[in-house]
Amino acid sequence: MKKPTASRDANKATGPLPAGHPSVPRRKVGVMLVNLGTPDGTTYAPMWRYLREFLSDPRVIELNRAIWYPILYGLVLTTRPQKSGANYARIWNRKKDESPLRTITRSQSEKLADIFAGDPEIIVDWGMRYGTPSIAETVERLHAQGCDRILSFPLYPQYSATTTATANDQLFRALMKMRAAPAVRTVPPYHDEPVYIEALAQSVEQHLATLDFKPEIILASFHGIPKAYFDKGDMYHCHCQKTTRLLRERLGLDARQLMTTFQSRFGAQEWLQPYTDKTVEKLAHDGVKNIAIINPGFSADCIETLDEIGREVAEEFFAAGGEKFSHIPCLNDSVQGMAVIEEVVRRELEGWF
């Protein structure tokens, strides 16, 4: 990205500073990649801490606290940590002793830092909405390195109050505690960006080329949200549908060959439909033998893609009569995935130099 000379000149002192006045450091811009979060371990205590933070977020669970907290502390947090911990244990990066989401998000940050390595005015870091490293810790770290401007990039292609909005909430909570708060920008949803659609399409084509079968149907499975949130105006469902439509057009598929479904529902209320698990069961019962699933709403593979789709949904498909199943990996830190992140970051940095 070419930077105007006039903007660079703005970083230079216009005259001598008063005696004893500290020098003003050169202005820098921090780029912060943000993802959902991860527990620090798979045992009860770290899982309990992570789930408490996640499920206490009023953006995620909109029930009245007086109703929800007795359920959360009396039932959910006494049973769910063990089950979730067992699921995480199956996909845990044992070499680094961390979840795949943390491994991948760190790698995305490091690769983006390499891309901007020739520009000392840009510093790249990463944080999590829940768990560690927190958004507040990352903001403080960037600020300590001289960043008076921060571009926060919630890595959610489709906007939802349960994801993008709560990440932004946490960013501004961190700023509220700072005396000299940096200026900030937040990246908008990129669900229909050509570079993102092209990256998804290439990932599908490359993965299918490695299979010994041709899927009869591909499901684009997105994380669900309660239908009530959509009824209140959350734009997530529309963004998901547009992503699938654009991907379908790019791949030359029809509505039957590439379908939108929603996964990961929690609780008894109705969520966005059709449900991924119910859909694969029906497809198998209807005679569909071979399917593949892609998760366009996840920028990095995680518990919901690797275990829920890669294990649970696959088992449900086979149990219902399916024969061949494949999960298409997320964009992660692949060449295509990094091309999306780089292009969006470069665009959103315009005007800050």
Rank of each mutant, 00 (worst) to 15 (best):
V34D: 00
E281R: 13
Y44W: 14
D192C: 13
S299Q: 12
F262Y: 15
N64K: 12
D333R: 00
A180P: 01
V29R: 00
D277S: 11
R185F: 02
P16C: 03
W126E: 03
F54W: 04
D9N: 11
Y196D: 01
I122W: 00
D169Y: 06
I91F: 05
Q257W: 01
G146M: 05
A89Q: 13
Q336R: 06
A255V: 09
R59V: 07
R106Q: 12
R347V: 10
A165G: 13
N64I: 10
M338H: 07
H327L: 14
R179S: 11
K12R: 13
S107T: 14
L36C: 05
R90M: 14
L142T: 04
R80P: 04
P70Q: 04
E216H: 05
A6F: 14
R106K: 15
V124I: 15
V344H: 00
A66M: 13
W68E: 02
N332V: 09
Y88R: 03
L349M: 09
D192S: 14
E249D: 14
A292H: 00
G233S: 07
C330H: 02
H239C: 08
I293M: 02
P100M: 08
F298A: 11
N11H: 12
I217R: 10
E350H: 11
P70I: 05
I67L: 14
L219R: 00
P120Q: 06
A13D: 10
P215S: 08
Q273E: 13
M259E: 08
G287I: 03
L219C: 09
T276I: 05
Q241P: 01
Q170T: 11
L246K: 01
W92Y: 10
E312A: 11
D119H: 09
W92I: 10
K278H: 12
R94Q: 10
E193Y: 13
A339V: 07
L247M: 13
R347M: 08
L51S: 06
L251G: 05
I104T: 12
H223L: 09
R265S: 11
Q273F: 08
P81D: 03
T38N: 13
T42I: 15
P18G: 07
Q257A: 15
H143Q: 14
A339K: 10
S84Q: 05
Y190L: 07
L251M: 12
K111C: 08
V24F: 06
A113S: 14
S23L: 15
Q158D: 08
A165F: 05
M1P: 08
T164C: 13
N64Y: 10
T305V: 06
D301H: 03
V34N: 00
V344P: 01
K83Q: 14
M178K: 07
K232V: 09
A180Y: 12
A144S: 15
D333W: 02
N87G: 10
A6W: 12
G131N: 04
H223W: 00
I67H: 08
I225H: 02
V139H: 06
P194Y: 07
R27V: 08
L219W: 04
E140I: 02
K232I: 07
Q263D: 05
R265V: 03
D57G: 11
I294E: 01
M176C: 09
A180N: 14
P4M: 07
P226V: 02
